[in-house]
Design a protein around this nucleic acid. Structure first.
Lengths: 138, 138
DNA sequence: CGTTGCAGCGTTATGCTATAACGTGTAGAG
DNA sequence: CTCTACACGTTATAGCATAACGCTGCAACG
């Protein structure tokens, strides 16, 4: 059975294990969740996971969800997503939708230009309930 | 010396102390930072601070910055700010600017309407460097 | 070849952030 | 008065993240 999408070939063993775990999960995972799933593979310490996550996030293969202190694999198979990414997080099923919006990006960079702020990183996270969970709850 | 802005009169002692501490700070504070500043006032346990913060955030008198695990007082003196708030956080001096943008709000609610997502809470945080720090570094 | 530099690895220890679970005190509603 | 709701105080614990150490393997270079 194939992964949701192929991983780059130049990942280290730990990075590959961590990314694989994220890809197999339908919900965000904390570093400790990941560690627990990888004990069989020989991982023992949080740092092993955090180091791998740092690299994956740096390369855009995974994202950190600040409001959850958790991580997801990037939804874009080839990870060419540029610019601002917004996340919609369902608090019921844990599902995360990733989307980009150029208008929002323009507004933010406009604000930054006006105030002389130099943006380095932006996080945008919407919490709520996804359509499916709303239907199921009805 | 007056507070940056008057606090509502119906806060409990702990809530007032915590809000006062946030108001006096020019940068976000973690719950433990606040606790340390309030030991003289008799506070001893994190929970005392967290409980006060919960209420303050609930009432919009303070905000939680997810990407810092820290808190700031609301910048709006009378806290009537509605809707989405974006935060621009300077990583150099710690200063936080609060702003609202209706266009962004419309785009997000548009996305939510299209996908059937029911938004409950949105966090938007921009990290970078403020104009003053950029000037100082030049 | 040797060695130098870098990146990742593994381990232990520690620090920071947040909440569970318990009981107490007090003010307002009925 | 008594019931309810809410805040409080305390102890203990859970959950998230990094510091600091030393080692290994590999590629670049003289």
């Amino acid at each position: 059975m194939a992964e949701p999408h192929d991983a780059p070939r130049d990942l280290t063993r730990n990075q590959g294990l961590v990314l694989g775990t994220l890809n197999r999960s339908s919900a965000p995972l904390s570093a400790y969740d990941i560690l627990d799933k990888l004990r069989e593979e020989g991982l023992r310490a949080p740092l092993q996971v955090y180091r791998a996550l740092d690299k994956l996030v740096e390369r855009g293969l995974a994202h950190r969800l600040e409001s959850l202190n958790a991580f997801v694999a990037c939804a874009d198979a080839h990870c060419h997503r540029k610019g601002l990414i917004a996340f919609a997080i369902c608090e019921r099923c844990g599902r995360v939708d990733e989307f980009a919006d150029e208008v929002i990006e323009e507004r933010l960079s406009g604000w930054a230009a006006n105030t002389g702020f130099k943006t380095e990183r932006t996080t945008m996270e919407i919490r709520g309930q996804c359509a499916e969970c709303l239907k199921a709850a009805a």
